[in-house]
Design a binder for these strands. Sequence first.
DNA 1: GCCGAACTTTAGATTCCCCTAAACTTCCTT
DNA 2: AAGGAAGTTTAGGGGAATCTAAAGTTCGGC
Lengths: 222, 222
Amino acid sequence: MPSPTVENYLKALFQLAVPERGVSTRELAGRLLVKDASVTHMLKRLSGTGMVSYEPYRGATLTPEGRQAATAVLRRHRILELFLHRMCRLSLDKVHAEAERLEHAASEDFVDALDRLMDFPTLDPHGDPIPDREGRLRGIDSRPLTDIPPGARVVLVRVEDARPEALTYLVSEGLVPGRKVTVARRLDFDGSVELQLGRRRLMLARELAEGIHVTPDEGSAE
Amino acid sequence: MPSPTVENYLKALFQLAVPERGVSTRELAGRLLVKDASVTHMLKRLSGTGMVSYEPYRGATLTPEGRQAATAVLRRHRILELFLHRMCRLSLDKVHAEAERLEHAASEDFVDALDRLMDFPTLDPHGDPIPDREGRLRGIDSRPLTDIPPGARVVLVRVEDARPEALTYLVSEGLVPGRKVTVARRLDFDGSVELQLGRRRLMLARELAEGIHVTPDEGSAE
DNA sequence: GCCGAACTTTAGATTCCCCTAAACTTCCTT
DNA sequence: AAGGAAGTTTAGGGGAATCTAAAGTTCGGC
Ligand SMILES: [Mn+2]
Ligand SMILES: [Mn+2]
Ligand SMILES: [Mn+2]
Ligand SMILES: [Mn+2]
């Protein structure tokens, strides 16, 4: 059984992966909040166990086994998050930290039981897809708020959970998956976006707007 | 935040405690499946942090802070066990191992949410009392099967979860909390007990019978 | 009161995971 | 084609938790 630390490395490697390129030492170190030297050390170890293919100075990639282990962690994480939010009523900005710990302790059996209890959901409470048991994950077509032309009416489908304080703020403004908003303005010089929320207007810095993914609101004519 | 290992030591110290006597190094080592030398090492560390009072060669006792931390772990453990059994349908002989890991990852908030979800239960699925938030735990008056005179009709209130294989066997025989049975015979020379289970009779070795706690069946006249 | 068995601690090593500081590689810019 | 900045690895060390082997303590039985 891989340690929590190893599971976190694998998950990060999976989430930072871009086709055709290895994930760099620095990138991983940044994500995991450890020093570069620690990452190098761990990559060698993971490479030794066959989870990662690693070429010094060239970055690392998951092997098929590593990928499977990584998506298993991601599946546990997201099912746990949804359970914590939907059934335990923990707020959207708290579930990530809790799931971050539970994901390493929860067995497949337990997580499958939660999955059944919630009737086999496909999205976590932040709008991220839940991998199936084989590690496949369905992409959702959505675009970041920063790509939407002014005037468009959209539905939030995903609100990234990377920076907890950012998420806390967005939750406090009601900007959670499912919420409908209108894009009022886009400031091209800094990439910030102004939203119309009912009668209020809210300015979002680019950083924030980039983490909010939306689709056109084709629903209820209102 | 104490590590999982430290939490396990505190919990064991709490559960092995007998009034007026320190818990011995060997006893702890046996319970935690580590060597005596490892226990000595840890006891010094715990003594340094004020969780344990430890006198070399004389055993160890929890301080008030240590006791509080220990009962908090026990509370998490038992609420998780009940949740896994009652809501996730995991079998009685599997919940302990799962809770043993989750207890170190689950926050008080999460566990309190489960507690509410299950309407503030007082007993775990093995019949052990769930400590309240202050660490108080209600004793249940029951006696081990080995103390019951032949002919008595009794209700199982507690089935110890120490040895997993034993529990698996008892579950397979339907010997779970709530089950009513009649004591058929008691073999004084080895302490084993024969039960009448409907039309079947079942012989239980002393080892097993000692871990089954019962009260007189005052319920339904049948 | 002593002696040995049972128990406990000490000493020294190992694994995992992290750190800092120094050396090394890569690759962009001039 | 350097030269240097950015990125990476190596070297050396530390804390947590474990182990084995050896030394020390306690205590019941004679
Ligand atoms: Mn994690
Ligand atoms: Mn999420
Ligand atoms: Mn445990
Ligand atoms: Mn239990």
